[in-house]
Nucleic acid binder design. Sequence first.
DNA 1: CTGTTAGCGCTTTCAA
DNA 2: TTGAAAGCGCTAACAG
Lengths: 345, 345
Amino acid sequence: MSKRATAAEVAELAGVSRTTVSFVLNNVVGMRISEETRQRVLDAAIKLDYHPDATARRMVTGQTKMIGFVIRQSPDQAFADHFLPQVLHGMSKAVSAQGFHLLLEVIPPENHTGVYMKLINERHVDGIVLSGPRSDDIELRRAYEEGANIVMLGQLPGEKIPFADVNNVGGAQLATQHLLGLGHTRIGMITNAPLAYTASADRLAGYRLALEEAGLIYDESLVRLGNFTMESGVKAMHELLALKERPSAVFVASDTVALGALQAAQLAGLKVPQDLAVCGFDDIPLAQYVDPALTTVQLPAFGLGWAAAEMLIRMISKDKVKNPYIMLNTDLIIRNSCGARLAPK
Amino acid sequence: MSKRATAAEVAELAGVSRTTVSFVLNNVVGMRISEETRQRVLDAAIKLDYHPDATARRMVTGQTKMIGFVIRQSPDQAFADHFLPQVLHGMSKAVSAQGFHLLLEVIPPENHTGVYMKLINERHVDGIVLSGPRSDDIELRRAYEEGANIVMLGQLPGEKIPFADVNNVGGAQLATQHLLGLGHTRIGMITNAPLAYTASADRLAGYRLALEEAGLIYDESLVRLGNFTMESGVKAMHELLALKERPSAVFVASDTVALGALQAAQLAGLKVPQDLAVCGFDDIPLAQYVDPALTTVQLPAFGLGWAAAEMLIRMISKDKVKNPYIMLNTDLIIRNSCGARLAPK
DNA sequence: CTGTTAGCGCTTTCAA
DNA sequence: TTGAAAGCGCTAACAG
């Protein structure tokens, strides 16, 4: 790696001062520099293969032009998921559009305390997007109160830290309404996870809301708790089918869990969607390949990443953020598992 | 965000010089500092909530302690894939183990020239891992020749730039040997992509090698070209099955393509594995869920990311790199599509 | 053992 | 229109 050219060398070659070089290269407005000088500087910069040193610039501007994306979930889970990569893609897009860079930090599960705060404290980044925030994160709250630029991916109940999240209530409503529209009146639900998870509680709320809007009464006996896994879906569906009066449709708030539910239904000799309609949530890649292809709710992963990064950069730049609490809507993807399209293809 | 404390302030509070502060906080060896002084410094640092400024440190050490991961493939494809996230996970692990950070840069497809070189030129990072390198990348070669720290993810034929790659030849051998071991002698192959792709050519070579090692002659009429997609698998398998003497087993060098091949076989009324054995490659998540579950070759994605980052950091640290050309072996995952386990579970 | 001092490469007032 | 000069916060060589 040959010696790097500095601005001083460019100045010397061009026969001007470093100041002028800086003005020309940064296109500083208000400084009217003669076309001839400007050209000399540009030529010299090219001849010397000059590139401004980002570190030196950071030093003097006090800005890193970098945001951190901190993944606090279990990494194995996070990276196996299809959701996070899409979010990453969205963030990367937003970030580069603003001339920023993206620092990716994965917190190992062993790490309890907010190690990621070092990113901000040591000025590696100007702000962070935090994926998988936890309610018990004291450092997080303190950092926020001290004015750190933080955007959470997903909300924490009762927290005033800016966030970007999926509208889980709305998505669940969408799914339930679809089932209602198909004529079902006895609709069961299997949650994606225990209700301590906000997303889980919200999806249940959306289901309930849709039911009540349709004039039906919410019947807790038709609800079972899933637990992220296919197995939990098998079990839950099994229980639902054992009811004296079994539901004619089931909304499962997670595709993975729905896969298990589908298995259980088939095991019970039921044809989906003819004998039982099933609607999922998440639109995992597998959803379109299973038989029957799963009708489900698609999450705006890319948009979520984009929005979070965009808002963070706004905060960093002290731009107005009209609403620091972003909720993105979901789409219903209609396939074959609810009977809306009985003749596939 | 309150004012940041500087080392000078810590020094003042502790009643020592900045040098001493630096020595204590960095645990510099050889400097024997009195326990009492050390404690005073530490206390002062804590009281002031002092955090060293990474930028200033970068400035003076000349090291960013940061590596860039540049994704040059189409982002949509890259992030839809399950492979890249795993690689990312591996890199992140290696990077943080060495006290480095990871800068993620996604090159939009519109961008022809090596924009990513700015990362190195402007000293945002100490080196980069380049995913999806291209043979026509002149900037890449030049940067390498000028001594830039670069590791490619995947190799370029005839290129001497360090790389980490999957042993595709070995993996294909593994798959073919498995089929041979099951007694098949007429084994077809469908490639994952056109042979211009190194990985594709290598997998074909591995297939051929295994055949010849077993004393069989390589028969080109049993080979068809896939093209990344399920559709190409359908077509290729269709042709193979139309042969006067059809193969009894087919090695498909891509799970996605194999999914299509499976469909074609079922369409032709063949039962897999009873009537036809099919072996895939990649171990995509879907592979274990299809029916029959796909026997396939698993790629060491995590290890690849880890190895690439590890090597790059070694290069940056001027450590010895025993072998700058890393080839990681694959594993055969035996499921049900080849008949090795006719009675699943 | 501890302090003095000289930069790292750049931006940016302030003068000329 | 251009130049001189003051730092940004830190590390590390060199003196005491």
